[in-house]
Every structure is written in structure tokens, then in C-alpha cells.
Design a protein around this nucleic acid. Sequence first.
DNA 1: GACCAGGCACATC
DNA 2: GATGTGCATGGT
Length: 221
Amino acid sequence: MSQPQKAFEQLYEAYGPQHWWPGDSAFEIIIGAVLTQNTSWKNVERAIENLRASDALSVTAIDELSTEELSELIRPAGYFRLKAKRLKNLVTFLVEECESSVDRMFQSSLDDLRERLLLINGIGPETADSILLYAGHFLTFVVDAYTARLVKRHGWIDFEAGYYEIKSLFEDQLESDVQLFNEFHALIVRVGKEHCRKTPICEACPLESLLPEGGLMRLEV
DNA sequence: GACCAGGCACATC
DNA sequence: GATGTGCATGGT
């Protein structure tokens, strides 16, 4: 069995299902994917609650808000001027290319939609994959900072590896199952928060038995 | 008060 | 192509 598959089974055994992505609609998940860029989820929740309270969790509602109004609502999520522009860019894409419909957007193929999302200013690889996997239920693995730390520190991949090499490591070695990809990324974030921050805490980590001989590799991640 | 959080774009070399 | 920097709030 591959290391990633073993890791998944141990994490799932330890933590159980994570019920990701939190959110009441695909659009809310999409908004959250942008708001959580380099930001704790707790702050994102406050921003989303502001949007909900203003009845602004829809394509048309955000389209009709000014960037300044939007930025005030999402202020708790940090980088609020920047993220207001990014949300506007995304909503403009939905309006102009998807008939203002999230369902219509997800009627594209995975590869085609991924490319088009990456053309939007403010949507990078992780945000695109989060949208595709968690809102669109496409088979694509999400790589975040915790994922990179995990695979590099455990010696599963070279320290110089980039986003796509890490993504392929998982996609090539796991069963092709959207629900597996969904749970695995969420479980990596869970174990990352508890054990794999900038300074690792390997004691009592569910993945302790998968550590390389002699412990972790170097920590420059 | 420093450090960190479920990134990304852009400038500069 | 690689490396550095700005973006900002809220918790520890």
C-alpha cells in the first residue's frame, strides 16, 4: 500500500469524517475558498456571516455591491480590499461566462474549467482546486501549506517540489474517488493544525508510525 | 509584541 | 526562473 493511502487510513481512523467543506451552498464554498487564502477559517466565518446577514451570498447580490461595500463586509477575513477585488473578479466571470449560474459553471469539463479559473486574477492553483473539489465535486486533489509540509518532512517527495508535483503524488497513488480526496485534504488540515505547524509536534500524531528513519527531514517549509 | 493562519500577484534581479 | 514583498484581521 502507498504511503498516502496508509496516511489516509490512519488519519480517518483517528479523526473520522471531517464534513468538508462547511457551507450551505456551492456559492458559499466558492466565496470561502477565496476568503480563506492565507487566513484562519475562524476569521472567514465572521466574514461569511456578515455576507449572510446582508443577504449577499449570491452571484447577483455580490455583483450589485460596490467593491467598497463588499470589502467592509469581509473585513474580518483580512486582506479585505484585495479579497473584495478577487471576489468581484470571480463573480464577473460567473456573470459573463456562466449566465450567473454556479451550476452552469460546473457543466464544463474539469480541465477546461480549471484553466479558466486560473485566468481569473486572484484564483491560484489551491483556490481553483478547492472550488473544483469541494463546490464542484470534481476529482482533483487540493494541496495547501500543510500538505506540502507533510510530504516534504516525511520524505515522500523532494523539498524543491512544487504544487503540481505534490498534487500528482496524491492523484497517482490514491484511488480515484472524489469523497476520498475530499476527506483526505480535510484530514491533512486537521492533523496539520494539531501537529504539523511551522514547529512540528510529532508526539501523539496519528501519523507517528509513518515517520522516516531518524525522524523528520529538515523543516524549511 | 511577535508569530501565525486552509495564497496570490507583482516587482526586481 | 528564482526570490522578495505587500496584502490585514484576529487568536495564541
